[in-house]
Amino acid sequence: MFNKKGDLGLPIYFLPTVAFFAIILFIFSIFFFVIGVTKNPNLVINPESFSDESKITTLVKTQTSQNISIAEIIISSAKDQTKKELLEKELKILLSKLPKPEARDANWNLDIKIENQDFLNTGIKTVGAKDYYKQSIIIPLESKKLAKLDLYLNCYGCSIEDIRRNA
């Protein structure tokens, strides 16, 4: 079958060997490139998760046209319901200034709850929209109750790219 100079049986085992070789390379390329076992398994955080809660902190500290902060208006309107209108007006102005994806149906909302009871909901909510960048803060009231503020971007049809670029 074989002579001394060469391998006469080459045509017999060459094809199966090359086929075997190709299969091996195919299987390992799946391991290395598809499953990615050579990649570091350490997961990198999504950029959109990398957000702080500075918006709500800044919002409650913002001085209004009345020369008092939003937090102080919340405290006084919890005591005196007539100041609620002023609070709502000031909040609407501030919320409209926060950056949001312009091409989408996106709105910043602020919900205020006192002892788990709705006190004020400002902003526009769209049915079927998702909430992004939810941030909360607690404000102590004169009555020794706590007001909880939730700020979030309500957006319909926003992609991660929209949010990342604009908000």
Binding site: T38, N40, P41, N42, L43, V44, I45, F50
Partner: peptide, 10 residues
């Protein structure tokens, strides 16, 4: 790689 258990950015 399995010995490294960091979540980058965490």
């Amino acid at each position: 790689e399995a010995k490294k258990s960091d979540l980058i950015g965490l």
